[in-house]
Design a protein around this nucleic acid. Sequence first.
DNA 1: GCCTAAGTGCTTTTT
DNA 2: GCACTTAGGC
Length: 737
Amino acid sequence: MDILRDLNERQKEAVQFKDGPLLVLAGAGSGKTRVLTTRIAYLIQNGVDPDNILAITFTNKAAGEMKGRIYKLIGYFAKTMQISTFHSFGLKIIKENYEYLGYDKNFVIFDSDDTLTIIKKILKDKNIDITKFNPRTIRSTISSLKNELESPSMYKNRAFTDFDKLVAEVYEEYENTLQKNNSLDFDDLLILPIKLFSERHDILESYQEKYKYILIDEYQDTNEAQYKLTKLLANKYKNICCVGDIDQAIYGFRGANYRNILNFEKDYKKAKIINLEENYRSTKTILQAANSVIKNNKNRKEKNLFSNLEIGDKISYYRASSGLSEVKFVVSKITELKKTVSLNDMVILYRTNAQSRSFEDGLLKANIPYKIIGGVNFYNRMEIKNLLAYLRLIHNSNDDVSLERIINVPKRGIGVKTLNNLLETSREKNKSLYDAIETGKELQFKKIIEELKTKKDTMPLTEFIDLVLDKSGIREEYQNEKTLDADIRLENLEEFKSVAKSFEEENGVISLEDFLLNVSLITDNSEITDTSSKNNAVSLMTIHAVKGLEFDYVFLVGMEENLFPHSNSLFSLEEVEEERRLCYVAITRCKKKLFLTNARIRLLYGMDQINPVSRFIKEIDDDLLDNIGIKVITNEDDNFYNKNNYDEFKKVDEKYQEMDYNNNISLNKVDLNTTYTNSDIKYEVGDFVYHENFGAGRVIEVIENKKNPKASLLKIAFKLPYGVKTLIYSHKSLRKV
DNA sequence: GCCTAAGTGCTTTTT
DNA sequence: GCACTTAGGC
């Protein structure tokens, strides 16, 4: 079979390029995955041993998909090939070298929840006020440091502010705690292999020999650690093929650095570079919209992505009066579409997970099946985490974090006091909490675990899980409760068992150890949330989660300033540009028809927010947009709100909601007869104002300039998604409401 | 030690 | 709006 048959010239070139460094700059929808998979097949057809190929993707989903596609091309060989995410590849290396790295065989991986618990505990021990220093911020700072390969001692030398000094201390303590618990965090999965390779050249060389051909997907999203890891591995043979697109770099917040792409030529002399610029996915209209948005980024390389597909439909833009009416609009469109189109071809995309709920409600009411990808995690539910903690403790009795979690679950009368005593003893005797248990109710708990330990290797995993549920008393507790909530939790536990079962079916007999390690890798992002779905369902997900996928019909919702671009990003150009790339990713997922929506007022986190139209909408050429319903983006329209006081917003909105849904036209006739002038406005504390970028706000302080009253400043409180932000402004950028 | 009520702070995106 | 924490009564 001719695997090259359907490729264009550029794609062929990329596939056939054999030895040496190769960078493929692949625009959205240009057949990137196809090139990668075909290239792998081609290498194998031309004599490369599949065992010598390493392919790295970003998500488990992408890895799975790539495996499937290679399997289709070349069959059997695909099974043994190493196709995985950076993190699972790292885990593999660690498993093969745990002793050298100083871990016991039964090490476990802590997810971000566990690590947060550790950080909180360290802060408590140090008597640090948690309200002053946010544990999450500390955690993410430590994570960034780790990904930048900066050790606690290195960081100490350059920590000068109070916060930095604290982080340095906590970081050191945190690393000790992980070590003591015989555990790793996610970042360690990348760092430890690097450590291993840097210290042991012989080991590095054996891996270099094994992985003679390396392929990396989504290269623009690699961070320092990932970059370093690939560089080490590729250093000997330099058969490295990286694929990426700077315009789709959306993981800067996690330390990814798209400049790794720009530096490729410096890193690998005589690198071959191939541009893929023909888009096979989207209509001309959609592609043009995407291009007109992304061209506003200053930090990028100009490129010319084109489509030879039809012009297609215009993009529908709907500005709803409220969050609710935005939902109604989307649901009504889906209802209409589903008469002729499969629900599987539709997706609702949003910037933040919090936005999914209202769409869920709407779809539920309309009886439209949907599935949520990502979002509130199955593995994050209390009952699952508790069960996992049991399993982990059984597997690794040094795991203090898990022990603390479950020693009193279900209630055994072991409270704070007992636990503190136990902590004391464990510290004195330098033992793990588990080993420090000698008396009392704790001992009964220990006996349960001991008994389970002896049984763990005597039965299939699913049976063992049942045993844990019974012996621990978890099942009994929920059964006795007889509430809907408890029933759901029981169901979730059953669901967890079936996850274990499918692991067994896939891999044959699986040890508790392998199960735990595998589960922790999918822990933080699953696609299990699958509420009402059969085989036919609308997908809901964040834009981050949709990367790499495509849909005929895309609803991109919440196109408002503060939401998208997100309010946290507005203060830095770099971050706004990342938001813009995110928008580019969202638009380019769409094959046939794109819907953009937003709301004038929305209820978020319990408060009303009034946001301006997203700048990304304004960046799209007007003639590509088809405005449905009320007339939009005109100044008159925005002024409509500005002319009212805030309390009236809501009343007007209620009216709007009825009207714009049933009778769009009448809205244009609304005239409030209020005049508005820009000069000589006196502001007082309590006045409502409207700002171009931040939306509605309220004056909390007037800082007068007596000499020049017009230069007086105002302290304004804006209601942003997570509370109130105060900013100081001159009159100029504001309008009184 | 356990339970409840009240209070607080928060959520950008993910392996 | 929610999840998590804390205080105080039992």
